[in-house]
Write a protein that binds this DNA or RNA. Sequence first.
RNA 1: GCGGAUAUGGUGGAAUUGGCAGACACGCUGGAUUUAGGUUCCAGUGGGAAACCGUGCAGGUUCGAGUCCUGUUAUCCGCACCA
Length: 828
Amino acid sequence: MSYSKEIDRKWQKKWDENKLAAFDEKRIADKLYVLEMFSYPSAAKLHVGHWYNYALSDSYARMKKMQGREIFQPMGFDAFGLPAENYAIATGIHPQDSTNDSINSMRGQLKEIGGLFNWDAELATCNPDYYRWNQWLFLQLYKNNLAYRKKAPVNWCPSCLTVLANEQVESDGTCERCHQEVVKRNLTQWFFRITDYAEELLNCLDDLDWPDKTKKIQTNWIGRSEGATIKFGVEKDGEKVYLDGEELTLSVFTTRADTLYGVTYLVIAPEHDLLDSLITAEQSAVVEAYQERTAHLSEIERQSVTREKSGVFTGSYAVHPLTGEKVELWTSDYVIAQYGTGIVMAVPAHDERDFEFASTFALPIRTVIRPKAENDHWQVRDSAFVQDGILVNSGEHSGLNSAAARKAIVRELSQSGCGEETIQYRLRDWLVSRQRYWGTPIPIIYCDKCGTVPVPEDQLPVELPYDVEFKPDGKSPLAKAEDFINTRCPLCGGPARRDPDTLDTFVCSSWYMFRFVDNKNDQAAFDSKKVNRMCPVDIYIGGAEHAAMHLLYARFITKVLRDLGYLDFDEPFTRLIHQGVILGPDGNRMSKSRGNTISPDPYIETYGSDVFRLYLAFGFAYTEGGPWSDDGLRAIARFVQRIESFAADEITSSLTPSMPQELSADDKELNRVRHHSIKEVTKDAERFQFNTSVARLMELLNALQKYSKAPQAKPELTLDVLSDFIKLLAPFAPHFAEELWQQMGHEQSVFLSGWPQYDESALDLDTVEIAIQINGRILDRIHVPAAASEEEIRDIVSSLSDFETWLDGKTVRKWIVVPKRLVNIVVA
RNA sequence: GCGGAUAUGGUGGAAUUGGCAGACACGCUGGAUUUAGGUUCCAGUGGGAAACCGUGCAGGUUCGAGUCCUGUUAUCCGCACCA
């Protein structure tokens, strides 16, 4: 029987019956939690990217199983989210129905991969038995002051009357559906205080076995910077401003307190909460027009340095905390409310953006730092001087260097209560409210009498109602579901309203790795004892696009649950691997519009899943990905056929594999290739470098074929090596290898047969070829005994007949001998 | 704009982390087998007639650089409401 999809089915059924993937609690000491990022159940079928992630992670897991680890590799579905809702709006098919259909079809396709997945642990985030605990998690954060509400802008399409995701806004700022201009609207929304954990999230990165680039991305995303918060007074129409009975001040964050005397104006973000209280009557028209204009811009556009600076004067003045000088307060879109305090002190002489802004609007530019090499009369002219230097025109601080001045100025400010040293993070709190239907309802009730009231935990889940009008018409879908939205206050029993929003789906994915361990628990999100035994996840595999957000949120929630006493570890994912992206045959990202998508199904049908998996293993550097190639896949199909016909020739029932007593040179060479392959396949698969693992398997097959053709070949040795070959092949072609293993006469699965060990002594060659270089140029290659010492190699080389010719009359200055590699003779 | 990465034959990709660049394949060329095509098998295959030259480009460090440093170009990815 030649390898085909029938073989796949046969073994999938057997593995299922024999519970090959089951996790044995008794062997927990050897547990290995292998997790792939769970998938979004879209209407489309399993694509090449899913296979690339799941099949090859499974190959890793299978190798580890053969090495004696007890594998826990669960599967689930990240089932809430925007696409299902958009699909529903377009087709009228309810998200729950389309999602359930997708899950069922994806589950079937996932099984065709033939992975050792623990299906008992399956979960889908859209089921009430999952999102109930999502709500519980929200309440824990709420109770511990880690969830709060504040205003934040959303994208609003005035024509579709709906909130848009950033993804739904075209690059020109229009709605993807109706192409009308999108505006920003401020809504009160829930946030998680991830910034409370900024320092720890940063510090713990060091100890993680994660790719350096991911650590860098997270480090920059958290963005720690040391500086000072400085308070400026405010005057509007010549008087101080009071808000809720308190005198208003403007706090700015700066890393350059040394430039404080150079402040010639302040800039506040156009969408800043305080701005409305600071606009004078005469300026109100221009400022409001400007705010309106800014609402149409994206953050990326606003931060572009190449854009011409724009802004308007608010009419109010800021009061300098040291000099008491009045400087103008402007508003401009290059300042963003979410960053820092949303207000910046502008020092045009020493900051490029401020310089440009001041030049555009003829605001004063005051030099307060000079280069060390210049004298005190030096002035900034054509561009800002942004480096550290010596202070000038800075009162008693003049003459200090920048570093000393930063300390001195902040000390002086702190004495008058106008400033303090501050560590600022770029990281912002996590906005979790979504004005959408297909998500976890936020378990909060608003009562006119009692205010914001959390839903009592014994009343969870707050179920997502099925019959809802999710077509956009200006209101949140849940806000229109009268039966849902109107409720009773849990405290006073009076009429109250539920929060109409749902939670960001990143909340679901921030703790699912713990639920897998205890997915049927209806008393708690999970049993801490179980999770503490099974977690953290030993190895987590998924796309690099999650480097910043998902992975940071999951780390944050892990630390919160730890601090609340539910977990006894600090980090959710010990080791992390990112797979690359498989591109279309044309080298572009696969997309329907380009027509370059590759569907796995026909290939599985024609070649079988193992050929598909082997090709994915061999054709790409795993973490890089690359363009799809049908030729590459056919090459693998040939490799499988070669194995098959070789095995058919060699496997006979009359022979048992064994090592001969005496080894001929050919025997030794075959044995050497075998052990070299064992060593390299193991090492490369351990670091997810499957392409070279498969290359070594090809070499071993080549060696086997060459050996077996020789008249002196010993069939029992051929079989012995073939036996190891099948084991090494098994993780990468599980069904096919299992079939061959059975043909070899084994009753038990190859995955229970143990992983081959390499014999270091078998790797040794008698002689090795080394290169001879003179001043780095290769002149010859010679064979020397592998065990030769540096001195011996030197002697061999200097006694060669060509030696004097190579020297060309020059003197040897230095010998560099790299054993088993080369000799470099430095002459002059 | 900010942040992250990548660049090696005609192609996918290797290179024990500073030590013989191009492993393993694809493709191509020639040959054998075959009624033909396909399959299979054998040989060759970075460029160059050669000296030599070759890892995006320009410098540098080193006995020695694909690998380290500086600069530069090009391409790709992420940027907080896609997941």
